[in-house]
Simulated scan of single mutants.
Amino acid sequence: MQPEPAPVRFDTKIAVLLRDDVLPWQRLNITAFLVSGLGTVVPEVIGEPYEDADGARYLPMFRQPVLVFQGDRDVLRLAHQRAISRDLPISVFTSELFGTANDRDNRSAVRAVPTEKLDLVGLAVYGPRNAVDRVLKGADMHP
């Protein structure tokens, strides 16, 4: 009998923090948008392509779980400040993005607002596990 392989533990963390007052459909949309750019900036988070038993090929995905948290406006504001001060890769989703319909307008909407005045409804952060844990202090796991 062969021993079971040891569980995989990652020294990094991918985390999404959502404001606790956004609607369920918005949470899903925000999460998808927030993590969409991570693999282009941090390619090591992407695993190998998938293939099923019949040889059909599928796109690669993140090599590790994406943990989703929630918090109020203050928790998001503090997490945003902490992530920026630690120079961690971060993406943001602001309330203004609910009124835009394309990437160009999304970028313009964020660019129009100073950092400290962003009306954050979500953010994603990646980095060493302990650094991301400190960024998310005060947030709760998403139910």
Rank of each mutant, 00 (worst) to 15 (best):
1 M>H: 06
3 P>K: 11
4 E>A: 14
13 K>Q: 14
13 K>M: 09
13 K>W: 10
14 I>V: 06
20 D>H: 01
23 L>K: 15
26 Q>A: 13
28 L>E: 10
28 L>W: 08
31 T>I: 03
38 L>H: 02
38 L>D: 02
39 G>M: 02
42 V>G: 02
45 V>I: 14
46 I>K: 08
50 Y>D: 08
50 Y>S: 07
51 E>W: 07
52 D>W: 06
53 A>I: 14
55 G>C: 05
60 P>L: 11
61 M>R: 13
68 V>M: 04
72 D>L: 05
73 R>Q: 03
74 D>I: 03
76 L>D: 01
76 L>W: 02
77 R>S: 14
82 R>T: 04
82 R>L: 06
83 A>I: 02
83 A>L: 07
86 R>T: 12
86 R>I: 05
87 D>F: 04
90 I>K: 13
93 F>N: 06
94 T>R: 06
97 L>P: 00
100 T>F: 07
101 A>V: 12
104 R>Q: 07
107 R>M: 08
107 R>W: 11
107 R>S: 15
109 A>K: 02
111 R>A: 15
111 R>H: 12
111 R>D: 15
113 V>M: 05
117 K>N: 12
122 G>L: 09
122 G>T: 03
125 V>R: 01
126 Y>R: 01
127 G>E: 06
129 R>K: 15
129 R>V: 09
130 N>R: 13
131 A>D: 15
134 R>Q: 15
135 V>D: 00
136 L>G: 01
137 K>P: 02
139 A>V: 03
142 H>F: 14
